[in-house]
């Protein structure tokens, strides 16, 4: 008749978790890191000074100073003294495939496939609802995200491909007109982080994703919910499979880890 004692005490415990004092500094850092990861801030770009940044983000100057110093320590920004000085996004601050690869190999196969399942469930539901609610303007904006804007995707960078692929999924959620599902897609994309950069380094993968996105769009256009869901599941599964294969190949080439640990 009552709540399970374990469940109740667990939720109660969460209420009294200490609030991290470093939280604000980390939050400022995370915002800037995210802006760099998604390409909103690019190498060489000048950041606002401490006072401007503090005003803009609604935190104290001490907090921004600490955040900037933390980012400097990570090598994400560099600071130049003097008249034309200031803080700039570092020249090598682009999301790097090497770091993404290291992160992928750090995960277990179980984590990758579970993340893929979660992503697939949310994305397919979005597509099914989008098929019920789409109009001509929605289809036009979806088509705009199938390939990166410049030169029909010819010679587009992995970063540009990834950006348009994440915009495409977000647009599907927007066409579905569900605020909760759209927020969930945003959260999942943040969880995937740089991982999704890896497959877009492979032109055949890019082409395959563009074809699947076209099929998803066609199903949404013809108000076929079943097909929209099926094509979207295929789209997400293609990415998950790529990551799992890369993970397997990467671990096979990292000498000694699994065998030694096993013995």
């Amino acid at each position: 008749m009552s709540l399970s004692p374990l469940g109740a005490s667990r939720s109660l415990a969460a209420v009294f978790l200490p609030i991290k004092s470093g939280g604000l500094v980390d939050e400022v850092c995370r915002r800037i890191e995210l802006a760099v990861e998604t390409g909103l801030l690019t190498s060489g770009q000048r950041l606002p000074n401490e006072i401007e940044l503090a005003g803009a983000l609604g935190v104290s100057a001490v907090t921004t100073r600490e955040a900037l110093s933390q980012l400097r320590g990570q090598g994400l920004i560099r600071t130049v003294r003097g008249r034309s000085g200031g803080s700039f996004i570092a020249d090598d601050a682009l999301p790097s495939p090497e770091r993404a690869r290291a992160r992928l190999l750090d995960l277990t196969r179980l984590q990758i496939s579970d993340l893929g399942l979660h992503w697939r469930a949310i994305a397919a539901t979005c597509a099914g609802v989008a098929a019920r609610r789409s109009d001509a303007a929605d289809i036009a904006s979806l088509r705009g995200y199938i390939r990166p804007a410049a030169g029909d995707g010819q010679g587009a960078t992995a970063l540009a491909w990834r950006l348009s692929a994440s915009e495409f999924m977000l647009e599907v959620a927007a066409v579905a007109r569900s605020a909760r599902l759209a927020r969930e897609i945003l959260r999942l994309q943040a969880d995937m982080g740089t991982l999704t950069l890896l497959p877009f380094g492979d032109p055949a993968f890019c082409e395959h994703i563009a074809e699947l996105s076209e099929a998803v769009t066609a199903a949404i256009e013809s108000h076929d919910s079943g097909a929209a869901e099926a094509r979207t599941r295929e789209l997400i599964q293609t990415t998950t499979n790529w990551l799992l294969a890369e993970h397997a190949a990467g671990q096979a080439h990292t000498p000694g880890t699994t065998e030694e640990e096993a013995s």
């Binding site: 915002r31 802006a35 909103l40 801030l41 803009a56 609604g58």
Partner: peptide, 14 residues
């Protein structure tokens, strides 16, 4: 009164 996306003021792409 949360300020929206203030970083955008420094980013032409955004």
């Amino acid at each position: 009164l949360e300020r929206v996306d203030a970083l955008a003021n420094f980013s032409p792409q955004s």
